[in-house]
């Protein structure tokens, strides 16, 4: 069995507030929710801000997650602002590629949500490509409703689960 991730909220706060070393270890579970800087598993208490050319910088400073309205795949202005920054960063850091994960809330059938998550990821990919990122550097992936960011069965959680998360890595698409 592969390891679980540490609680996400805590690491986000500390990433923003503290300095740190490059990650000591990447989490191996490819199915874990990779949004919001969760890749970072290093020492949170010391070091310097992550370099700009790091996945940690991308997730914590550029912003890796955008949200959608229920059953929608349209990008709102807030989402577009984050994606503009993502496109800019990806244009600047050509050695990185991206996997866009699409997610859906639990109130939908499993099969429909897989397709809905795919469509959300596709909408992000399309936007990034329109803003100058080479399409070959972006892959899309849908988790449907299988990997919620928040687990409650209320709109406050659903709103956070209707999302697309852009995960960047320096070692090629999908790896």
């Amino acid at each position: 069995m592969k390891p679980y991730l540490l609680p996400l909220t805590l690491s986000v706060v500390m990433l923003a507030a503290c300095a740190q070393q490059p990650p000591a270890q990447q989490v191996q579970d490819p199915y874990a929710n990779l949004g919001n800087g969760a890749l970072y598993q290093g020492d949170l208490a010391s070091g310097s801000l992550p370099g700009e050319a790091t996945a940690q910088y991308f997730s914590s400073q550029v912003g890796d997650t955008i949200l959608f309205a229920a059953n929608q795949t349209a990008l709102n202005s807030e989402a577009r602002a984050i994606l503009n920054r993502q496109a800019e960063w990806l244009t600047k850091h050509q050695e990185f590629s991206a996997v866009v994960q699409g997610h859906a809330e639990e109130t939908g059938t499993r099969e429909y949500n897989l397709a809905l998550g795919a469509r959300r990821a596709g909408a992000v990919q399309e936007y990034l490509v329109a803003n100058g990122v080479e399409s070959g550097r972006i892959r899309t992936l849908s988790f449907g409703k299988e990997r919620p960011a928040e687990v409650c069965s209320e709109e406050s959680c659903y709103a956070k689960n209707r999302r697309a998360v852009t995960v960047v890595s320096a070692s090629g698409v999908g790896s």
Partner: peptide, 9 residues
Amino acid sequence: FAQDNGVDT
């Protein structure tokens, strides 16, 4: 089966 090509399924 269903196949998604990034645009539609």
